[in-house]
Computed example of a mutant assay.
Amino acid sequence: MTHLLGPAEIRRLAAELDVRPTKKLGQNFVHDPNTVRRIVELAGVGADDVVLEVGPGLGSLTLGLLDSGARVVAVEIDPVLAGRLPATVSEHAAESVDRFSVLTADALRVRAADLPHEPTALVANLPYNVAVPVVLNLLAELPSLRRGLVMVQTEVADRMAAGPGSRTYGVPSVKLAFYGSARKVAPVPRAVFWPVPNVDSALVAFERSGAEPSTVDRGRLFAVIDAAFAQRRKTLRAALASWAGSADRAGEILAAAGVDPRTRGEQLTVDDFARIAAAR
């Protein structure tokens, strides 16, 4: 069994690299082996998987993922952290070295061609400020990605997993629903991180559905979603006026799509938005 990193080792590694976790990169390192094991277990990954890990940091979750038998491709934006990861893997999980690779890159710009293997699952402790854009970029760019389990700020988890009519339903909810289903799985206590964050965290699982909701172009669909929620207090007829060219034209498009122009964006499913985009 792989030896996982505890609080003392995390601090020793950080001191060795002269790493001071930065708020800008959203760095909060998990230092609790039991939390790592729980994340890996909930992710359900194993020897058949190629796991994409974004923001591996000092390698806590990386070692847990390798322990599952999966192949791990880590994407780390910080060159100092990325440079140390292979040594951490060989020190703590020597038998897993051939199943590990690291790419120094920004996950918001990763393309399929950048990766040495096609990932099947995303498992990551995501920097909170870019969590949703990272997940959406990876789902768009990596069709091989079938499922994922990500740790994010609780408020972000609520938005990712919300359904129509909910107070937290918005752009992230609808865009994620375009790819599949998301659900909030479990809270993660603040004490398992170093430094201790001043926000609560939660795990969100998502699964890509077999088919995307319509043949409508994703860019066109996402433009409607953005417009509908840019002024979420307004009716769709008013909120979509600039997107459609005028409020009257928005009303015509909504009627053609079978959507009441007086409703608001938060009442609609991704399929409703797809019909609106197609009706323009």
Rank of each mutant, 00 (worst) to 15 (best):
S144F: 06
A113I: 07
L115W: 04
P7N: 00
P56W: 05
A186K: 05
R233S: 03
L58N: 02
L13A: 11
F100P: 05
A43D: 00
P261D: 00
S201I: 04
A241M: 12
I253K: 10
A70R: 12
D106T: 12
G6N: 14
V270Q: 05
D98Q: 14
L81Y: 06
T215E: 13
R218T: 15
A247K: 13
T235N: 06
A241K: 13
R249Q: 14
G46N: 08
D217N: 15
D158H: 13
S242I: 10
T120I: 10
L136S: 04
N28L: 03
S166Q: 15
Y169R: 08
Q267K: 15
P187S: 14
Y169H: 07
E141C: 10
T22P: 01
H92G: 02
R183Y: 07
R280A: 15
F229P: 04
V192W: 08
R71P: 06
L58R: 05
S144K: 03
V135W: 01
A202G: 11
T120E: 01
P189Q: 04
V132E: 01
V132D: 01
D48H: 10
H92F: 15
S209M: 07
I39S: 01
K234F: 05
A113Q: 14
H31T: 07
G180T: 09
P213H: 01
A140G: 15
A257I: 11
A227Y: 10
A43K: 09
V45E: 05
A8W: 07
G83H: 13
Q267G: 00
Y179N: 05
T22L: 08
L58P: 06
V73Q: 02
A82H: 05
A277Q: 02
A177M: 04
G245L: 09
V102A: 06
E155M: 11
R249P: 02
G170C: 09
A105Y: 01
V80D: 00
D226F: 11
H117D: 14
A256G: 10
